[in-house]
């Protein structure tokens, strides 16, 4: 059964923070990795990606710097800040809570009120 891409897209910020927890990265590398991990379900478009980068950078969760490519356009690398680490912990805790509540509401085995 296919997972809803729209539903996943609601978690773009958290997904990007998690990607950067693995190390500094740039737009296309993250797009590829997210697509591979989600088995092609979540294809982040450039607009979604860079709007999220901008939002996260303005909030202080990530910082950015230019790569030192000598030819053509340069890569913009993104880096997770300590505030970003903290935000990711919060997002994960919130996700666990959401999953638990939803599982109870949907009557999943192993979850009780």
């Amino acid at each position: 059964m296919a997972v809803s891409a729209d539903w996943l897209r609601g978690y773009t910020d958290a997904i990007l923070l998690r990607e950067l927890q693995e190390g500094d990265s740039y737009g296309y590398e993250i797009q590829k990795h997210v697509s591979a991990l989600s088995k092609g379900t979540l294809q982040l478009k450039e607009a979604t990606l860079y709007t999220a980068f901008r939002r996260l950078e303005q909030a202080g969760y990530i910082s950015s710097y230019w790569g030192d490519e000598m030819q053509g356009a340069r890569r913009r690398y993104y880096h997770l800040t300590p505030q970003g680490e903290e935000k990711l912990r919060e997002e994960k805790a919130q996700w666990r809570e959401t999953r638990k509540t939803l599982s109870i509401l949907l009557g999943e085995d192993g979850y009780e009120v």
Partner: peptide
């Protein structure tokens, strides 16, 4: 700046 970064992404793709 964003245009340049996107340009790089698309070129790499």
């Amino acid at each position: 700046e964003i245009r340049e970064a996107v340009m790089r992404d698309c070129q790499e793709r």
